[in-house]
Simulated scan of single mutants.
Amino acid sequence: MSDAVPLPDLKTPDDLFAFLNALGISHATKRHAPVFTVAESVALRDEIPGGHTKNLFVKDKKDRYFVLTVEENATVDLKTIHKVIGAASRVSFGRPEKLMEYLGVVPGSVTVLGAFNDTGGNVTFILDEDLMRNEIINAHPLSNDATTSIRREDLLRFLEATGHPPLVLKLTD
Rank of each mutant, 00 (worst) to 15 (best):
G86Y: 06
V42Y: 12
K62M: 08
K61R: 14
E101K: 07
L131K: 03
V123N: 01
H27K: 02
V105R: 00
G108V: 11
R152P: 12
N21G: 13
T37P: 08
A18V: 10
R45K: 11
R133S: 12
V67N: 00
L44I: 00
T69N: 01
Y102A: 11
L10D: 04
A139C: 07
V105F: 02
E97Y: 11
K59V: 12
N55H: 02
T69C: 11
D173E: 15
V84C: 04
I136N: 01
S2E: 13
L7S: 04
V70H: 00
E153C: 08
L56T: 04
I48M: 04
L23K: 02
L7V: 00
D77Y: 08
H27E: 08
A74S: 15
L78C: 06
F17Y: 14
L68P: 00
D130W: 14
V112K: 07
N138H: 02
A74V: 06
P49I: 13
P34N: 09
T172K: 03
T124N: 05
L131V: 05
A74L: 10
G104V: 03
V5E: 14
P96N: 06
H52P: 03
I85N: 04
F158C: 06
K61S: 15
G51I: 04
T53V: 03
I85A: 08
H27L: 15
G51T: 02
R90W: 05
L159E: 06
L7M: 12
A33E: 14
I126K: 01
P141L: 10
A33P: 06
V110L: 00
H82V: 14
K61V: 13
A74P: 13
L56C: 09
G120P: 07
D173A: 11
F116R: 00
N122A: 13
V106W: 03
R95A: 06
L44R: 01
A88M: 06
P165T: 05
V38H: 01
M100R: 12
G50H: 01
K11S: 12
G50R: 01
F93D: 04
D130L: 15
N117R: 08
N73W: 09
S149M: 11
H32E: 08
D154Y: 08
D130V: 15
S143G: 10
Y102W: 10
I150W: 02
S149F: 02
T29C: 08
D128C: 05
G51P: 02
I85S: 00
L155C: 03
D118W: 05
D130E: 15
D154S: 05
R90Y: 06
P96Q: 06
T172D: 09
D63K: 07
N55M: 05
E153L: 11
K62D: 10
A161M: 04
E47I: 14
P141Q: 06
A87N: 03
E135H: 14
T124P: 05
K11H: 14
R64K: 15
I126F: 01
S26H: 15
T69Q: 02
N21K: 15
L23P: 06
P8V: 01
D3G: 14
V110D: 01
G86D: 02
D46K: 07
T119N: 08
H32W: 07
R157E: 11
